[in-house]
Design a protein around this nucleic acid. Sequence first.
DNA 1: CTGTAGACGCAAGGATTTTGCTTTAAGGTG
DNA 2: CACCTTAAAGCAAAATCCTTGCGTCTACAG
Lengths: 189, 189
Amino acid sequence: MSRRQMVRPGGRSARVQASVHTAVRELQTEVGRDALTVPLVAQRAGVTPSTIYRRWGDLKELLSDVAVERLRPDTAPKDHGDLSSDLAAWAEQFLDEMASPTGRGYIRDALLGDPDGSNAGQCSAYAVQQINVLLTRAADRGENTPDVETVVDRVVAPLMYRILFRPDGLDAEYARRLVKGVPARPTGR
Amino acid sequence: MSRRQMVRPGGRSARVQASVHTAVRELQTEVGRDALTVPLVAQRAGVTPSTIYRRWGDLKELLSDVAVERLRPDTAPKDHGDLSSDLAAWAEQFLDEMASPTGRGYIRDALLGDPDGSNAGQCSAYAVQQINVLLTRAADRGENTPDVETVVDRVVAPLMYRILFRPDGLDAEYARRLVKGVPARPTGR
DNA sequence: CTGTAGACGCAAGGATTTTGCTTTAAGGTG
DNA sequence: CACCTTAAAGCAAAATCCTTGCGTCTACAG
């Protein structure tokens, strides 16, 4: 979230933020992301443009906030019985969601309008959180587990790098191969 | 490069492109990247704003082109005698250049104004090219070498991911550790 | 040398962004 | 509960930026 968010959580402020976010999401599907403008969003949200400019600075930052919201995982990853199956399934789903044109758009938006890097950090935190669920679950089963940072380096980072820099030739098989490259135990660091 | 570049390589077109790019670079250091506007760049370049809008579309795309130019490696990586030293040195330098505020800015710009993804692809191609120099050099020495894609997954991707999503806590030691995680031989794929 | 077409300059028109001032309402205080 | 304080929103004018049509120039081809 940008520096301007979350002040006066209850009341008008919150209502304005909600209606602006809703307006962005609706218009994204109706007119497409490239046709969005601040005045357009303001009109749909029933708000004056200057309100948006004052709170978010510009369209990029607003889109960044909305993108982070949409990138938040809404469900805990399913249990497949063992860590490597869990990781493989999670990686495939991650790739599916993130590599789609929509997903790529959100990632780019999240990165773009992010002066202090907190929105990008939040995206990473979501992934870390999901992976931690898998890892603690595995540890509870008595499995040996790598640490989160290793999974980030070996799975999340390659997926993201390719999504952003080389969107071609990505498939579930690649995601599975990455998971196979994760060592079974914590790496010495 | 955008779709509008490199038409009529000689003559006026080329002069305009050069002076616009120069104007962007100069103004970036003088007034800072956030204060750049198309009219400002146009004035410095001795060109009318509409020329820039017609050729590049908007500021994002122009900045993206300039950023890719600046991300192009200008020198072949030095020879340290063996592959792992070469990779370690290259990774450290890569991190140095890319993780700085300036470097991050260029990467973000390159990603940002890139409708078709060709600029981002070019960034990745630069890294691949440099790594290939190291790998063929090692092969000429008779060393076993991993393939480029493995180095990209194990070294470049984690560095980039962290630069973009979690800029804190990056140091040369981390780059070296990544290089140690590269297998000595090609991975079966 | 001449023709052609792509690229630029200029200027008008429209849209967006910024900004000063006023008004509203959330949250605290007596 | 009434009052005070202040962050945030509304409003409107001004500044800035973006778009577009048209005329001109110049690189390249024949």
